[in-house]
Design a protein around this nucleic acid. Sequence first.
DNA 1: TCCAGCCTACCGAACGTTAGGCAGGCAAAA
DNA 2: TTTTGCCTGCCTAACGTTCGGTAGGCTGGA
Lengths: 187, 187
Amino acid sequence: MSTNAKETILAAARKTAQAHGYGGLSYRDLAADVGIKAASIYHHFASKADLGAAVARRYWEDIAVELDTMLETTGDPMECLRRYPGTFRRSLEDGNRLCLCSFMSAEYANLPEAVQRETQGFADVNIAWLAKVLEMAGAVKPKESEARARAIFAAVSGAQLYARSRSDVAEFDRLIESYRASGLLPA
Amino acid sequence: MSTNAKETILAAARKTAQAHGYGGLSYRDLAADVGIKAASIYHHFASKADLGAAVARRYWEDIAVELDTMLETTGDPMECLRRYPGTFRRSLEDGNRLCLCSFMSAEYANLPEAVQRETQGFADVNIAWLAKVLEMAGAVKPKESEARARAIFAAVSGAQLYARSRSDVAEFDRLIESYRASGLLPA
DNA sequence: TCCAGCCTACCGAACGTTAGGCAGGCAAAA
DNA sequence: TTTTGCCTGCCTAACGTTCGGTAGGCTGGA
C-alpha cells in the first residue's frame, strides 16, 4: 500500500466527494476505502482542508488534460462541442455522481478558503476551453464566445444536477437535446 | 414563542438549509435561531427527516402560489417568462443562498427518502408552470413545451449555482442574458 | 385535571485531530 | 562490515466537540 498511497487516497476521496460532498467526506470511511487507518492520512495531508484542496486541484488538472487531448485527437472543434456534455454524463453513469465542482459550489459556504479557490479552477478551465472551441468552430461571434461558454457550462451543470435528482441519465440526454434544439448548444 | 413556533422553525430551517444544506442543518443551531432548546423541536417534528420533508414540501407549496399569483396579476405569459429567473435571483441576493431544491439535489444520496420525494416536488411545480406559460405565450410548439420547460429550469438552476460559487449576483444576470441571446429563453 | 409547550440532563455515535510508538529501509559514520 | 541514526509509512489510543435523539419533569392556560 505504501507505493502511491497518496494517489490512492486522492482518487478515493474524489469519488466519495462526488457522491457525498466535502462534508460527507469522512477520514474513517476514506481510510477504510484505501485500506489504512484514519490517522495515517495525516502523513500525506496536513488537514481535511488540505486534502479537499488537493482533490479539487487534481480534479481540474485532469479535466484540463482530457479536454485538450480531445481537441488534439479529433482536431474538429464542432465534434468537440458535440462530445463535451459526455464528460458530465460519465459521472452520472458512474454511480449517479456529480461534478465535484457543482457539489462544492453548493457547499460553498461550508468550505475552507483553499477549497473554495480550487473549486473555481474547474469552472475556469471548462469555460476557457469552451470559449476557445466555440471561436474555432465559428459558432458564435468572437466577442460573445466567453459569455456563451459560461452559459453552456452553467446549463450543462444544471442538467447534470437535475438528472441526478431523478437518478436518470436519460433525463440528462434529453436536456442536452433541448439545449441543442433551442440554440444554446450548436446542433 | 408558542404561537406559530412551528412556522418559525420551518422558516428558519429553510433559510439555513438554503445556505448549508440538509446536512448543515443542526438542531442546536436551529433552536438557538428560533429561541428555544434543541429538544423542544421534537415537540413539533418527530425527526430530522420529518423536519426536512416538511421544509421541502412547504418550499414548493410556496413557490407554486408565487408563480400562479404572478401569472394572475400580470395576465401576460411573456412577462412571466421574463420575470421567472427573478425568483432564483432573490435567493442569491438574500445571503448568497441557493434554491433548496438544487442543494438537496446535490445532497441527494445523503437524504432520507421522504426528503428526496419532496425535493422533486419543487422541480415538478416549476416545470409544469413553465410549460403552461410557454404554451400560452406561443413561444414553442405545444409538443415541445414540456421539454423546453425542463431545459429552462435546469439551466437557470445551473446559473444560480455558478453565480453562487462566485458570490456574484451580476454573474447570474449575465448568464440569463446569454440564455436569452442564444434562444433558450424567449428574448 | 389535562395537555400543549418547553425545559434539563443525558445517551451513543461520529467527527477531525493529536500524541506517541513501532517496523523497516537507507545512508553516513565507526 | 557493522553500527548508528534518521526518515517514511503506518499504527493504537485517545482527545474534545458536535451530532440526532430520548427520558422525564415543570408550568400555565383551558
